[in-house]
Every structure is written in structure tokens, then in C-alpha cells.
Simulated assay, not measured.
Amino acid sequence: MKKNIKTNSIKKLFTTLVLFQCIPTTSFAHSGNTDSSGCHNDYINGGYHCHNGGGSSGSSFNFDLDSIYDINIGYQHHISDTSLIPYIGFSVGIPHYDSSTKTGTDYGLRFEEGLYLGYNTASESYRIGYKKIHISFNNEYIGLGFKLPLTNDVIDQSALYFSGSYLVK
């Protein structure tokens, strides 16, 4: 009975995250062309604010292009009678060349010993990890992240997983 409750909880979490990812990323954008400093009036959200490192006189959020991130949910499958555990998932992130949200895939190969290698198309970054922690990087950014199987805390099982990375210049 207890295992069934946990399985149902994981299914609900996965369904919720998949449905959340179906929201178009343009719904998070706001109106207004920028001036030569990268700033503009945002009549919908209110205030004068800047993008790409310009100055700001409003209280609105200012995205810093010197950092990128990705968050992911997917599935890892342990191939029986081998030490191979390939994984693939859905990703949302900020790529290095733009401040808008991008969707993509997260995929790679994990080994029973805990080492894993992967690539994320949303943040356009590679990762090298061991157990639950990884280093993410591309030609301009480097950062840290995590990968957590959604199971009984055993990293070498077939299971849903959740991961994320944060990278800086």
C-alpha cells in the first residue's frame, strides 16, 4: 500500500510538470522596445527597467545575461545485465545567447558506478557528474548542478529523475 501511494505521488508530480511545460514560453514575455541602453517602459508590468546589464530605475526583475540555467525532468532506464543507464528528459532553460526561455532535451548516459555524461539543449551545456552532483559547461559558462532519481534514493535504478544546473561566466 505504501509503495502504491509513492508511485501515485510520482505520477502526479510528473503529470503536473509535463502540463506546466506545455505553457508557451512567450506567455512570460512583456511588451516594450528597448532604448540604446537596453531599457524600456513596461506598461503592462509597470516601471522602467533594463535588460542585458543596463541601468534600472524601476523595481521590475532584471535578468542577468552573465548566468544561464536549466531544469529538467525525464526518465533513466537501467539496461539489464549491463552497467549502462541512459537517460532522456524534457528541459526548460535560458541559453547563453538570449534572455528568453527555451525548451529542449536533456540526455546522457549514467553508469552504475555513479559517473554520468550528458548534454542539455535548452542551456546548450555539457555535463560531467558523479552520483548526484555535476559540473555543467559550454564554451563561455561553467557551473554546478544536481540529478536526483525519483526513487528510493538508489541512483542505479530505472526511474524518473529531476535535475538542474546553474552556470556563470
Rank of each mutant, 00 (worst) to 15 (best):
Q21D: 13
Y69L: 14
D66P: 00
D156H: 04
T15M: 10
F162W: 05
L65Y: 03
G89H: 03
I155W: 04
N52R: 02
V92S: 15
G104P: 06
Q21T: 07
A29K: 10
I94D: 11
I44P: 04
E140T: 02
K2M: 03
S100P: 01
L150K: 01
G53L: 05
C50E: 00
L109W: 11
T7V: 12
Q157D: 14
T16N: 13
P24F: 09
S9F: 13
S37N: 15
Y119L: 12
L117Q: 01
S57E: 05
T16A: 15
N120I: 07
S56H: 07
L150T: 00
L117C: 07
T151L: 08
G58P: 00
F137K: 01
I73K: 02
Q21E: 11
G53K: 05
I88P: 03
T101F: 15
I71N: 05
L115Y: 14
I142Y: 07
T34Y: 08
G54L: 08
S59T: 14
A29E: 10
D153T: 04
D70R: 08
H77Y: 15
C39R: 05
Y161V: 00
Y166C: 11
S158K: 02
K132Q: 08
T121L: 11
T103R: 15
G129Y: 02
G129Q: 03
L160K: 02
T26F: 12
Y141Q: 07
L144A: 14
T34A: 02
L65E: 06
S163Q: 01
K131V: 13
G55P: 14
F111K: 07
I10E: 03
K102D: 04
A122K: 09
I68Y: 00
S125Y: 03
G54F: 08
A159R: 00
G47T: 00
L117N: 03
H77P: 02
H134V: 00
N72Y: 09
H49E: 09
S123D: 12
F90S: 15
I135T: 04
T34G: 02
S136T: 06
L148G: 02
D98M: 08
K6L: 13
I5Y: 11
I155D: 04
A29N: 14
I23P: 04
G53E: 06
I44H: 07
G145V: 13
A159E: 08
K11I: 12
L115V: 15
H134I: 00
T121F: 12
F63L: 09
L160Q: 01
F90R: 14
G114R: 05
H77G: 06
N4E: 14
Q157P: 04
K147H: 01
S158G: 04
E124D: 15
I88A: 13
N139W: 03
S80A: 11
Y43P: 07
Y130D: 08
S36I: 13
V18D: 05
F111H: 05
Y116L: 00
